[in-house]
Computed example of a mutant assay.
Amino acid sequence: MESVPVRCPACRRDHLYAAPVYPCACGAPLTPPLLRAAPPEPITHRTWTDDWVTVRCPSCERQDQWPQPELGCPCGTVLRIAVRPVSAPARPAGTAAPAPALPPPPPAAARPSFRPVTIRTARDAVTAAAMYLRWLGFADVVRPGNAASAGIDLRGTGVVAQVDPSTRPTSLRDVECLWLNGLAASAHSVCFSLAGYADEARARADGLGIPLFVMDLTGCPQPVNAPADELIMTVT
């Protein structure tokens, strides 16, 4: 699997990023070709049309729109990873394609791999978060259907969650409202955001022990603070 080194321009932290694999219509696994020479771009404003890239399948030559690769840095910055344009040659002429890497064997007693849903709408973001909470082990995660659940997008046994699909960073008020709802329900409070978190929201969540996740358009949440890492490790 192709991976590239990525340095966050906000905190200077280094990451090794591997693009997600998608199934092409022909059945072949497809990975957006990353442009190693291009620096990552912090996302400060989102539009649905700008968050898709054209990728050509090397097996059938079909071109389709796929989510723009993104990386959530633990500092709260969401980075857009550049993709090689389809007009550029994927490899020098006359060279053979590299053999696909075999996936490593799963560790014993581990969860099965999370299978995300592509996010195209705000409703998709809520669906992806619900699937992730169920994957973590929370039962009966559903969208609440009553006015008493204002500020809560998902509720399950032992958990309440807020999903922010907006193009602005999640605010301090949002985090505190979520915490109060969790306190009232004696449940874990979990927050998901597409655009990351304001600095004061991140600091407050760390102090309250609220797990924060960012999601890219592949629908795969990434932890951005210590409570989120602990949640992944402890909930089964």
Rank of each mutant, 00 (worst) to 15 (best):
V175M: 06
R115M: 06
R168D: 10
D140S: 12
A130G: 12
A18Q: 15
T44G: 15
V142H: 14
D124S: 10
R115A: 06
G182F: 01
D206Q: 04
T236P: 04
T127V: 11
A161D: 08
P211H: 05
H188P: 09
D140P: 03
E200G: 09
A82L: 01
D216Y: 01
D51V: 07
S59N: 07
P20E: 00
A96N: 08
T118P: 01
N181T: 08
P92Y: 07
R13H: 12
C220Q: 14
V6Y: 05
T234P: 01
I43E: 04
A201E: 00
A195D: 06
M1I: 13
R80F: 08
G182Y: 04
S149Q: 03
D140G: 08
E41A: 05
V117H: 09
D51I: 05
L212E: 00
L79D: 08
H45K: 11
V142T: 10
D229L: 11
Y197L: 11
A161C: 11
R143I: 14
A110T: 10
S113I: 10
A201D: 01
C177Q: 11
A25S: 12
L16W: 13
D140R: 13
P107F: 03
P144L: 06
D229I: 12
G182S: 07
A18T: 14
T157E: 07
Q65T: 09
P116W: 00
C60M: 07
L194T: 06
C11E: 06
W48N: 14
A184P: 04
V142E: 09
N225R: 02
C11Q: 10
V141S: 02
G94T: 01
T218V: 08
R134E: 11
R7W: 13
S113D: 11
E41F: 09
A90Y: 15
A161R: 13
L136F: 08
R123G: 13
G145H: 02
S186K: 08
G209N: 00
T218L: 05
H188W: 15
C220L: 13
C57E: 12
H45D: 09
P169V: 03
C8N: 06
C177S: 08
L217V: 02
A108R: 11
V163R: 04
P32E: 01
S186I: 04
T236Y: 15
T167Q: 13
T218G: 06
E41N: 09
A109M: 10
P221L: 09
P165V: 05
D64L: 07
R204V: 06
A19G: 00
E70D: 05
C8L: 14
D153R: 12
A82P: 00
V4M: 00
F192P: 00
C177E: 11
S113M: 10
P32T: 03
A195I: 10
V117P: 07
Y197P: 02
P211N: 04
A122F: 08
P58T: 07
H15W: 06
H45C: 09
A228N: 03
T234D: 03
D199L: 13
Q68F: 05
V4C: 01
R155E: 08
P69Q: 03
